Simulated scan of single mutants.
Amino acid sequence: MPKDIDWKNLGFSYIKTDKRYISYFKDGKWDEGTLTEDNVLHISEGSTALHYGQQCFEGLKAYRAKDGSINLFRPDQNALRMQKSCERLLMPQVPTEKFIEACKQVVAANEDYLPPYGTGGTLYLRPFVIGVGDNVGVQAADEYIFSIFCTPVGAYFKGGLQPANFIVSEFDRAAPRGTGAAKVGGNYASSLLPGKEAKKREFADAIYLDPASHTKIEEVGAANFFAITKDDRFITPFSPSILPSITKYSLLYLAEHRLGLEVEEGDVYIDQLDDFKEAGACGTAAVITPIGGIQNGEDFHVFYSETEVGPVTKELYDELCGIQFGERQAPEDWIVKVK
């Protein structure tokens, strides 16, 4: 039975669900893993995740499709990205098959928390790997935990598909040759202060420029940036310190193959915003959030509108969500059925 939840007014916050998956790495291998009702982790005080930031995570969603089935959207790509994050932090990789099977188990065990089709809600999955065990020196742990929990969510930014304004931060999100391309907690911890300052000034979040020259847009809060040029090209920043967003690469494909646009990963200079008629932030949590305007120092640049969604952004949003909710034909291997 579906839970008694106000599905249409879900925010993006934690709601405890019935089961979560947990697997332990010890003596050089992962165990089989299991589902548990316990939402509290029991770890050593010497865990490297606590002291040295040896941890990474992922985010993906389960969707109740139009035909009643349950979709996972490109979970193999989340598995690959987590493997790269683990490699960067000297943690054991979680095999793709194990990752996807664990996701399926968690969704199936918590199906009653999956928002019904038509509400706009989804079941958000948070896989993570942490270094644990009795450690004290600065070195990789010998033991690890891989776990996945889930929670029903609505829109990440209030209002759903409505333009939001952002402000350019003076802070850097990541170092030029640091961990910006890995989905690790330290990147997000450093964004809390600039994010809080942006919200204090009534912006949705901060925009980060490239750490080397501070001339090019890299990320929008915890999301990737994209823009539509005045001659209908889809462009998104390229940099070794940007997290490779699965949503962004999906939009690159859809913009080219479904909308017929030219696409490009390249430089987006903060002083050349006049080249673009639309812009947006994209990611698993944000999906697509249209950017109404960007505050950069004393300058405020408006794209399509501060109140209305641009037509290309709307078309991309409809195409992406249509695929995720089973309303439109998905490219091959993009959808994995839970049931």
Rank of each mutant, 00 (worst) to 15 (best):
P95V: 11
P95A: 10
T96K: 12
E97K: 14
E97L: 10
E97R: 11
K98C: 04
K98M: 15
F99M: 05
F99E: 00
F99W: 04
I100A: 09
I100K: 11
I100G: 09
I100Y: 08
E101C: 01
E101Y: 06
A102V: 10
C103V: 14
C103Y: 08
K104D: 02
K104I: 15
V106E: 00
A109P: 01
N110I: 00
N110M: 01
E111F: 04
D112S: 15
Y113T: 09
P115A: 10
P115G: 11
P115M: 08
P115N: 10
P115Y: 03
P115C: 09
P116S: 11
Y117F: 15
G118C: 14
G118D: 12
G118H: 13
T119K: 06
T119V: 09
G120S: 10
G121R: 05
T122Q: 07
L123Y: 07
L123T: 05
L123W: 06
Y124S: 05
F128Y: 14
V129R: 01
I130L: 12
G131A: 12
V132L: 06
G133R: 11
G133M: 12
G133L: 14
D134W: 09
D134Q: 15
N135W: 05
N135Y: 08
V136L: 15
V136Y: 15
V136A: 08
G137R: 11
V138D: 06
Q139D: 13
A140E: 07
A140F: 01
A141C: 09
D142I: 04
Y144Q: 03
I145M: 04
I145Q: 01
I145L: 13
F146H: 02
S147W: 02
I148A: 03
F149Y: 13
C150T: 06
C150Y: 00
C150L: 01
T151A: 13
V153L: 10
V153K: 03
G154W: 00
G154L: 02
A155H: 15
A155M: 06
A155K: 12
F157T: 05
K158W: 02
G160C: 04
L161F: 12
L161D: 10
